[in-house]
Design a protein around this nucleic acid. Structure first.
Lengths: 233, 233
DNA sequence: CGTGATGTTGATTCTAATCAATAAAGGTGG
DNA sequence: CCACCTTTATTGATTAGAATCAACATCACG
């Protein structure tokens, strides 16, 4: 099956709209998009050493980016929601140096990089749109690299996920957590045990409610206060 | 004194060349550069809430970027060597959310953002050049956010600094460290005491030599091995 | 249903922070 | 140039936060 071209008829226009892709100055991007997937839990969109040929966005579902260092240690570098750009860290490289893995049934949009550069010659806002995404990602990484307590980082993680879902028009009362505790912990520099304990602590305080597929945030203000130092304003 | 325009006659062309700014496709950037400074230790290039109007690069000397969170805690987000872009994290914002501070007598190049966008309409490689810088920064931040031991982070910090100096054609035998131990520690999520102890440990092992203004790396291979997981390859 | 993977909870250990004291450096004014 | 004083750096003793080790519970899946 050849990848379907263009965004015409895509049922997921709303999240793209929320991410700013519906601006007429970016119309060219919509015409070069290819759909990838669905991939299922644990399947790879790309791997370390895969040649860099395209940028991606999640269309539906969720994904993680994982860096693998020389010693083989894995580092979960980001979780991706629909509409969020994937692969900006490889633009200055020949090859990807990390992997992108689906978390649950996930579809992607693929933007071939050659096509992006071609489109950019006609629509000069295109590179600046990517630049804005990169700029935002830099801000986020700078903050999250900071020296904060486990509780602060974890609260910020939950609130950040909620806020990103909110800005995409996704449900905010319930946060699905399709990744493992190990993934969350790895991402936040915590062990699975510590993640479990923090979830338990927040539950005991009545700040969250846990179910099999995720959490309900019962005290968003409380969590936001705990994580405030780590949240972009 | 009005800022001097253009890079013609600038005595620091070599580092810019090493950073790729001498490519003819970027010639427009050279014509809009303004020189700022010299600033002295502790003086600000900009502060949080300063309006975002330009991107900067260090010309000579060294600088740090400091984020200040809601609670007033400071976080040293980066140290900048000559030729390195400053302010990419503010491109999608109206205002800077962090400060840039000179470390020792430091001069900057200022690239007004309006002028950059103007130049970009003539030289389409300009935004992609910034994008490459942003991409590289994302890669670096993703790695350095990882969960590594104090010793690994510190060794990687020293080697990274050396390698960046090497790629700019600066001396590599001696690393000046114009920032305080507190700055280094803050940047690496360590206390000043721990930085001191690590320096002491490396010195005892004969890996470095300490003097008043910086360090000599006596066993680069050893340091590189300690920090290998954190270094981009 | 098992059964292997994932998640929770408790006991103990360890890395780096904190607390504390001293030493060295840098800047200032006489 | 030196004495003084403030800031910065080093080193040691103790503490704390999260990791590790360990046992058990629960879930997903064939």
């Amino acid at each position: 099956m050849p990848p379907s071209q263009s965004c015409a008829g895509c049922g997921h226009a709303p999240v793209c709209q929320a991410s700013g892709y519906d601006r007429p100055e970016l119309s060219g991007l919509r015409h070069i998009a290819e759909r990838i997937g669905p991939l299922r839990t644990g399947e790879y969109l790309y791997r370390p050493l895969s040649p860099f040929r395209a940028i991606y966005a999640v269309q539906t579902g969720m994904a993680k980016t994982v860096a693998v260092d020389v010693a083989g240690r894995e580092q979960v570098v980001a979780f991706h929601l629909p509409g969020e750009m994937i692969g900006l860290d490889a633009i200055d490289r020949e090859h990807h140096d990390n992997a992108v893995v689906a978390l649950g049934k996930t579809q992607f949009c693929r933007f071939p990089f050659n096509a992006i550069r071609q489109v950019a010659t006609q629509q000069p806002d295109v590179p600046w749109h990517l630049m804005n995404a990169a700029s935002h990602r830099i801000s986020h990484l700078q903050l999250s690299g900071g020296n904060y307590l486990a509780e602060e980082r974890f609260a910020a993680f939950l609130v950040d996920l909620r806020d990103r879902r909110a800005s995409l028009g996704l449900s905010t009362d319930h946060l699905p957590l399709p990744m493992s505790r190990a993934d969350i912990g790895n991402h936040l520099r915590l062990t699975t045990e510590t993640v479990s304990r923090l979830l338990g602590r927040f539950r005991q305080r009545g700040m969250i409610q846990l179910d099999r597929h995720g959490v309900n945030l019962l005290d968003l203000d409380g969590l936001r206060e705990l994580g405030q130092s780590l949240l972009v304003h």
